[in-house]
Design a protein around this nucleic acid. Sequence first.
DNA 1: CTGGGCATC
DNA 2: GATGCCCAG
Length: 261
Amino acid sequence: MRKKPIYSIIAVVLVVGIYSYDYFLNVKEGEVVKENTKTFYLPTSTTNQVIHHENYSLSYSEPHEQAEWVAYELKASHIQYKNHKRPYFEIDPAVKTGAAHWRNYKNSGYDRGHLCPAGDRRFSKEAHDETFLTSNISPQEHEFNAGVWNRLEQKVRYWAKRNDGVFVVTGGVLQDGLESIGEEGVSVPKQFYKIILDDSGGEIKMLAFLLDHKDSNESLYKFVVPVDSIEAITGIDFFPELDDAIENKLEASSSFKNWKF
DNA sequence: CTGGGCATC
DNA sequence: GATGCCCAG
């Protein structure tokens, strides 16, 4: 072996290469990412810019200067009440096309509305801080953000505790012709969606919400829609790795009988 | 919980 | 730009 080190080097390169290739295959969009022992369901990207952070993934839309979706697992154990100081919003360095600056939001009249809520990532300072990237926010009316949207986020935490974890995919509906704010032109969505998937009970359950970008005192179940209808207006395929028969059945349903409100 | 504005350095 | 303080739904 000592006489022919070149063979050892080649062997190491081959092994590393194969495992790297396998790794990148696994994190390709629409594929399944192994996150510890759980399986993480990722949507497709219409923008070809999927980014994986430690505690959530996203697909960034450069024209709209925000994520078209943010996806993450919310485990029951994630829901803690540790207090962290709110940090400054930072430009997401992983967005190669250049994520928006928070200054676009300043004096715009709109909140920097989290997509992956800070309240869902309070289990560590690192996870909490990671939600303060500008790739994780969208312009939201304060009354909406602190109102019906906040109610929905709290309900998701309730389900995560009750069902021992859920998967969440959320974002604004990005379309042509939206109003925009700031020098970089961050689009202001007219609707926001949130999709919850629970696979803890052996059988997969799915629930989707579509809300107009305005506050409401209506009960949350009034906003339940089939996943199909969100796919139709966003062009995103939300659970492509699910068995087609299961995917088609679940995504066509707007039933919420299996969910306690 | 969800956030903002303003003064200060 | 970063920090601290006071504010609202």
